[in-house]
Design a protein around this nucleic acid. Structure first.
Length: 899
RNA sequence: AGGCCCGUAGCUCAGUUGGUUAGAGCGCUACGUUGACAUCGUAGAGGUCAGCGGUUCAAGUCCGCUCGGGCCUACCA
């Protein structure tokens, strides 16, 4: 197959992807001898579109999947989508509202609204699937999962029921983060904080003065808390006071001593509002204080706040109450204050802490069997990373993880929305409660059971993702099997769990990664994954988060794929990418990556010409390689493969890509492909085989990064099968020729030096030169001589002679000379600019002296010589000797020119 | 308030356990090519490794402080 002028991704990529998929290459090998390598794809939101976060995730995971697959593992990369409870429900509700349905929940009712959301999801899932394909992701679509699949629901319910039985799930009134706008609770992690200007009030409060930024909550106070050691208040502790509020209720407060109160802050006395503050609720728990709810779920004051204030919004009440306090002479001070507000991620509206009965996971109860002990969930979370069962990359994220664990509170898992896994708890009458997949006696409706109306936090089901996706759907359909049996009998679970690597953004370390560890250790007794690889955010070239509102700097992965191809898109996300590191992506970067694709393509054309119609199968590498340049090339490839294997194994993907690119460009293209055009190498019988082999190895090395163009070239050059399932190149230990490696390197240096000389002497390219080479390093003499024709051609030398090193000083006075540790190259210039040559040598002399002085100084330092490692000292000695020799040569040369 | 990360060439970043003359890509300058190259090649300029101090024979690398930038967490009422 002959190659077009350039690679057109648009015409090839979709077809190549279809071929891969049809070949079954995405499915793991069923050869039991192969080790399993598993990645659970973090499921994108089913209603979303592919953004750069997904793109970088897919690129990195695909590199791992393709590399391990070629290296011989049974690779399972399991794709899927997430139902994204709150996000999806609010998207659909807004859509319905835009279509003229002001209150879809009321208008449709639960069943119809849920059906309508399900429809919407089903439609948009296809879109995200196509986008994942467009990235070239080599995931196993036959095992695609969705967080709302029946067998996943089965797992959700089973885990819930077991945790309930173990006392790890409980229902209790707690202060929840209530979003009055979305009318639901949200978890601690779904909140963000924002500094807002506010007022800090100090008010008279019975016998005390108390400071607060939320005076309206004082209507619901039940205590004053002070530090137990605070002399000012010690006498009051334990006493009870009645405090009448202007136009409000008279509250009864008890004075409690609590060490959590900071005596330095404000007046040192804290009004305790148990119903509307997490902190105050904790104080109330410790001191057994009553709780009065004065703010309702609608975000308005309740009757408990008194008839005057009831019905006001919180903001209205704050203003009104402050005014009344002022009028009554109770307001001591009101000063400007910066308040940290809690806002909901989804609605961007203020969170109102209030008491509500919710389902919680107890993170402190010791009920989890782990390594022969019974630990709390919190302890297990810590142990997995502490003991090294799970490795987090970058390492410093482990600190963040521990910090999070230390501050972890019980996890509120119930939500008052309709879209999601419904809490698997059933009630009948006042007394009967059943927790499990479904009530014991068949049809719940007929038997008078009602299911809990709440749904579960999305992250509860995502927390099971690594293993619930491996549970066999048919087995899960059988209600007789319990969770243990399901796991024991599901072949994929046995084969592919724990997964190998969890690759995701560091921004969801807590949301998701930690929850997977929590739920999976509990449910399966295994860690969910061995390694966590956290990638960074993608920023625009100014370092800001990309947003559609800044189209000039925004890179849309779909546009980029359409315009430049998936290979280019992937590489631009991978180069310079390291774990945890944010990546600035500008359009320039993309252009640079596209050039590599083009370069590979063009190199292939030359390779194809060199192969001259033979197939790679015809061009088996001979046992003995003769030509030094071929030996050099194979030796270089051996070194490269070793380096790349180490980089990949260490998760340095960007670095690996960079190294392959560098060697490919500067050694394979610039040196080797130039050299094979020259007689001697060009007509060597072994050369086509070496070219074919080395280029094939490069295609393999590039494949995880640039799957499409490499796969296309693989078949265009006549290789059998698909590159995706070809075997990863092995470093051939036999391909080790030190003299050839050093010799050809020297030749390349020599060529470069002569070219520099030409440039300095301002010689036209056409200018004829005579080149005399003195070999100083006898070990590489033969190799250098063998490279003669190549040197001649690439330096455009008219005549080339080799001389012995002893002839160093014999170069004629009108020649320009380059001095190297291994060789001396003299270019006869004719009417050259001797002044320029003189100046150049002077410069070289000066630099050399400076360098030598530094080395000598180091060697004169007794401390260095005695204390440094002997190898280090020897290195410096060798270098000094070489430097001295070179200096002498330069000096001699200058003398010759003068004479 | 606490924690974490970052500061290396004009730009984006590499720099593995401290050890020769700190690298790459892009950009820039000059020259050359268009017979693998919507080009490519060659050569070149460009860095007080944020600053100060310390440990060490030796610091971009380890430690402390300062300045600058970013992120996360939080029950300062």
């Amino acid at each position: 197959m002959s190659l077009d002028a350039y690679f057109e991704p648009q015409t090839h990529e979709a077809d190549i992807y279809r071929r891969w998929e049809a070949s079954g290459a995405f499915q793991p090998s069923d050869d039991p001898a192969r080790p399993a390598f598993t990645i659970s794809m973090p499921p994108p939101n089913a209603t979303g579109t592919l953004h750069l976060g997904h793109a970088v995730m897919l690129a990195i995971e695909d590199v791992m999947a393709r590399w391990r697959r070629m290296a011989g593992d049974a690779v399972l990369w399991l794709p899927g989508t997430d139902h994204a409870a709150i996000a999806t429900e609010s998207v659909v509700i807004r859509k319905l509202q835009a279509e003229g349905m002001p209150d879809p929940r009321a208008a449709l009712g639960r069943e119809k609204l849920v059906a309508s959301i399900a429809d919407f999801v089903a439609q948009s899932r296809d879109r995200i699937r196509e986008q994942v394909r467009a990235m070239g992701a080599s995931c196993d679509w036959t095992r695609e999962r969705y967080t709302m699949d029946p067998q996943l629901n089965r797992c959700v319910n089973a885990v819930f029921a077991r945790m309930f039985r173990d006392g790890l799930i409980y229902r209790a009134p707690r202060i929840v983060n209530w979003d009055p706008y979305l009318q639901t609770t949200v978890s601690d992690d779904e909140i963000y904080h924002e500094e807002r200007p506010a007022t800090f009030y100090t008010m008279k409060y019975g016998p005390f003065e108390v400071g607060t930024s939320r005076p309206e909550t004082k209507l619901g106070d039940t205590a004053i808390a002070v530090h137990p050691d605070d002399e000012r208040y010690r006498a009051h502790i334990g006493k009870t006071y009645e405090v009448p509020w202007p136009k409000g209720p008279t509250i009864t407060i008890r004075v409690v001593g609590d060490p959590h109160v900071d005596p330095e802050f404000g007046t040192g006395a804290l009004g305790v509002t148990p119903a509307h503050s997490h902190a105050d609720f904790d104080i109330a728990q410790r001191h057994n204080l009553p709780l009065i709810q004065i703010i309702g779920e609608d975000g308005r004051m309740t009757e408990a706040a008194g008839p005057h204030y009831a019905g006001m919004t919180v903001a209205e009440c704050r203003e009104a109450f402050a005014a009344e306090l002022d009028a009554a002479g109770l307001l001591v001070e009101a000063r400007p204050y910066s308040q940290s507000m809690s806002l909901c991620y989804r609605s961007k509206k203020a969170i109102e802490p209030l008491p509500k009965a919710q389902w919680f996971i107890d993170v402190n109860k010791p009920a989890v069997p782990w390594k022969g002990k019974t630990l709390s969930l919190r302890q297990v979370l810590r142990d997995t990373v502490d003991a090294g069962d799970i490795e987090i990359l970058p390492e410093h994220e482990a600190k963040t993880y521990f910090h999070w664990i230390d501050n972890l509170r019980d996890w509120c898992i119930s939500r008052q929305i309709w879209w999601g896994h419904r809490v698997p708890v059933w009630y009948r009458g006042e007394e009967d409660m059943y927790v499990g997949h479904r009530p014991p006696s068949g049809d719940p409706a007929a038997d008078g059971w009602t299911q809990d109306p709440d749904t579960l936090d999305t992250w509860f089901s995502s927390a099971l993702w690594t293993w619930s996706t491996l549970v066999d759907p048919d087995l899960a359909a059988d209600p007789a099997r319990d969770l243990r049996q399901l796991l024991a009998e599901s072949p994929d679970f046995a084969r592919f769990h724990p997964t190998s690597v969890m690759e995701t953004g560091y921004d969801i370390l807590f949301f998701w990664v930690a929850r997977m560890i929590l739920a999976t250790t509990y449910a399966t007794g295994e860690v969910p994954f061995r390694t966590v690889y956290l990638h960074g955010l993608i920023l625009d070239k100014d370092g800001d988060k990309m947003s559609k509102s800044k189209p000039a700097t925004c890179v849309d992965p779909l546009d980029t794929i359409a315009e430049h191809g998936a290979d280019t898109m992937r590489l631009s996300l991978l180069l310079g990418n390291a774990p945890g590191k944010d990546l600035k992506l500008g359009k320039e970067r993309i252009v640079g990556c596209k050039r590599l694709v083009n370069k590979i393509w063009n190199a292939a054309k030359l390779v194809q010409r060199t192969m001259d119609g033979a197939s790679p199968a015809d061009l088996a590498l001979p046992e003995a390689i003769e030509h030094p340049v071929n030996r050099w090339m194979l030796g270089r490839m051996r070194q490269l493969i070793t380096r790349i294997d180490a980089r990949l194994a260490g998760y340095h993907f960007g670095d690996a890509a960079e190294q392959i690119r560098g060697d490919f460009w500067s050694q394979f293209c610039d040196v080797y492909l130039e050299a094979i055009k020259v007689p001697g190498l060009a007509d060597a019988a072994e050369t086509p085989a070496v070219v074919s082999r080395v280029f094939a190895d490069y295609l393999k090395l590039f494949h995880p990064f640039l799957p499409f163009v490499t796969e296309h070239l693989w078949s265009a050059l006549g290789h059998d099968g698909h590159l995706i399932t070809a075997s990863w190149p092995a470093a051939e230990m036999a391909h080790d020729w030190p003299a050839e490696t050093a010799g050809v390197d020297a030749a390349a240096r020599l060529i470069s030096a002569v070219r520099a000389l030409r440039a300095e002497q301002d010689l036209a390219a056409a200018a004829k030169i005579d080149l005399a080479i003195g070999v100083r390093n006898r070990d590489i003499g033969d190799v250098l001589r063998a490279c003669g024709p190549i040197i001649e051609r690439l330096t455009r030398a008219e005549q080339l002679v080799f001389e012995d090193a002893s002839d160093d000083a014999e170069a004629p006075a009108d020649a320009a000379v380059t001095l190297d540790a291994d060789f001396i190259a003299a270019v006869r210039l004719g009417a050259a600019d001797r002044a320029a040559e003189h100046k150049r040598l002077e410069k070289q002399l000066e630099a050399g002296r400076k360098r030598l002085a530094g080395l000598d100084k180091q060697l004169a330092n007794e401390n260095f010589v005695t204390r440094a490692k002997p190898e280090a000292v020897q290195r410096v000695r060798d270098e000094a000797a070489r430097q001295r020799e070179e200096l002498e040569a330069v000096e001699a040369r200058l003398a010759t020119m003068a004479g």
